[in-house]
Computed example of a mutant assay.
Amino acid sequence: MGKIVITGASGQYGRMATDKLIAKGVAPSDLILITRTPAKLAERAAQNCDVRYGDFDKPETLAGAVKSAEKMLLISGTRVGARIPQHKAAIDAAADNGVKHIIYTSFVNVEEDNPAIVTLDHRETENLIKASGCAWTFLRDAHYADAMILNAGPGFIASGVWMTSSNGGREAMVWREDCVNSAVAVLTQDGHENQAYPITGPVSETFEEVAAMLSEICGKEIKLVETDDDGMYAHFDALGIPREPVDDQTVAGIPWNSDDMVSFERALREGYLDICTDHVEKLTGHKARSVRELIEANADFLKQVAKDNAA
């Protein structure tokens, strides 16, 4: 197996993928880790990984960063609505410098009629990769359960309210780690060229069902409150969340923007995200873990949030 280049290697997904590839027996020296901030990966350099500076927003930095790699794990950027030129720079660098296979972290349903704006970036990125001449694998990851339970969940618990416009829409949220495990499988196995895999949790659920589980396990009632798109915008505005993506801006530690989230809830409401597959198990040999299992695994943390915000 040739060298693997990982973009965004200092982020959560990239760090986990690096750990798991090394655990699988990939030599650290065969891992090229691209980051805008190499100092953040000093410990990887100490492990003998090849840490290289590269910036999606500076295409001229990427040709040298990807050289000698056979496969690229292209981890999508965080600026929803602004990622296409960033991804194009990485794809062009890969195609021009000998990368044979691009594995991309996409999204569950990138069809043109999906109203979630997150799909625009992913759909166009998939098209650019297909046009690049490289082999491709699209890991179409569902909504991360971690984001909903561990990032947004404490706010729901603190207020006792989960505001939504999903209106009973279903989705099969997936553990980030199961997504990473699937990517590692594709990177270390043969036969995944030119395939698209929806990567989902094991069961499609409504936010009402998830709120009930969260309430039960944390010990504090969380009331699901339905509103419309305007109500969701007003809710996010009140939290200080920008409507459009802003680079490096986070609110409560999350890179939110409300255009993304309101359109996402519309897609959920209209059934576009109700996709459930067994690809995690097919790729990794292990069943995808459920939202309930994630809540249970983090029960102590969630119970403490409830205790700290007891009425």
Results as ranks from 00 to 15, higher is better:
85 P>K: 07
253 G>W: 12
41 L>Y: 04
189 Q>G: 13
278 D>I: 09
174 V>P: 04
124 E>Q: 15
172 A>Q: 03
243 R>C: 08
112 E>Q: 12
194 N>G: 05
150 L>T: 04
43 E>K: 15
20 K>D: 07
65 A>V: 12
226 E>S: 13
140 R>T: 02
27 A>G: 05
234 A>Y: 06
293 E>T: 03
308 D>H: 07
221 E>F: 14
267 A>C: 14
23 A>S: 10
201 G>K: 00
144 Y>L: 08
135 A>D: 13
139 L>S: 03
201 G>E: 00
116 A>L: 14
153 G>V: 04
82 A>F: 15
139 L>P: 04
18 T>V: 12
28 P>T: 02
224 L>S: 01
66 V>S: 05
11 G>E: 04
278 D>F: 11
55 D>P: 07
46 A>Q: 06
286 H>Y: 15
10 S>E: 00
133 G>W: 11
71 K>G: 04
295 I>D: 00
261 M>F: 15
108 V>N: 06
124 E>Y: 15
231 G>L: 15
230 D>R: 09
263 S>D: 01
170 R>N: 07
229 D>M: 13
203 V>Y: 10
218 C>V: 01
156 F>G: 01
192 H>T: 05
5 V>P: 02
184 V>C: 09
117 I>E: 04
74 L>M: 11
224 L>C: 03
39 A>L: 02
23 A>I: 11
162 W>F: 08
206 T>R: 05
243 R>E: 02
262 V>D: 00
188 T>Q: 04
122 H>C: 02
131 A>F: 12
227 T>D: 01
97 N>V: 13
201 G>T: 01
281 E>Y: 12
140 R>I: 06
52 R>C: 04
199 I>Q: 01
263 S>C: 03
61 T>Y: 11
8 G>A: 05
86 Q>T: 11
154 P>H: 03
166 S>L: 07
258 S>Y: 08
185 A>I: 08
88 K>W: 14
